[in-house]
């Protein structure tokens, strides 16, 4: 159509393979640094709170993203939460199948407006209900590095 000569033979089309060979090191930022230092050292979660908008941020932000107020005081909100929603995941990021499907959940932390996305551990899928209370399970302190991977997941509240 638009070009006057087209490929009409199946054996002719070719492709060129390549990659974008980049590697990254991310800092956690001002708020992220505080959050994960606290997870690592104290095993608890921090929030920031905007009294103008009445919003509490988990993960904490140094700013309120609704009014731009600077948020510089951090509140310990504990590690208890509620299942906001969940899914049974069968795949990894690269599209490959997981050996065992995992339950991923969005957990609202305490009475904040935020929360964390992580695995539910120690449950059968049929046991999970929206609104159900759960509690964070952390790695032992000695193994924590200051990362989302310091959290093993959220387990039953006993």
């Amino acid at each position: 159509m638009a070009i006057t000569e087209k490929i009409t033979d199946t054996t002719v089309p070719t492709f060129w393979e390549g990659a974008i060979p980049v590697r990254y090191v991310y800092t956690f930022g001002l708020a992220g640094e505080k959050f994960f230092r606290t997870v690592k050292d104290k095993g608890t979660f921090l929030a920031t709170y905007c009294d103008e908008c009445d919003i509490s941020f988990v993960p904490p932000k140094v700013y309120c993203d609704r009014c731009f107020k600077e948020l510089d005081s951090y509140i310990d909100v504990g590690t208890l939460g509620y299942v906001e929603t969940f899914t049974l995941s069968f795949r990894n990021m690269d599209g490959s199948e997981k050996e065992i499907p995992k339950i991923l959940a969005m957990v609202r932390i305490g009475d904040t407006d935020g929360g964390l996305i992580h695995y539910l551990e120690g449950f059968e899928i049929d046991e999970i209900a929206i609104g159900m209370p759960v509690k964070a399970v952390l790695k032992p302190k000695s193994q924590r590095k200051g990362s989302i991977e310091d959290i093993i997941g959220f387990g039953p509240v006993r």
Binding site: I3, E5, A19, F36
Partner: peptide
């Protein structure tokens, strides 16, 4: 960074492509 004074996380994305050469570049190659 080297002394771990700041928390970081690393990532190496797997960005791979197979671009169609099409008519012109296919013939060129």
């Amino acid at each position: 960074f080297k002394q771990g004074k700041v928390l970081t996380t690393e990532w190496e994305p797997n960005l791979k492509y197979a671009w169609d050469n099409g008519v012109a570049i296919g013939r060129y190659l």
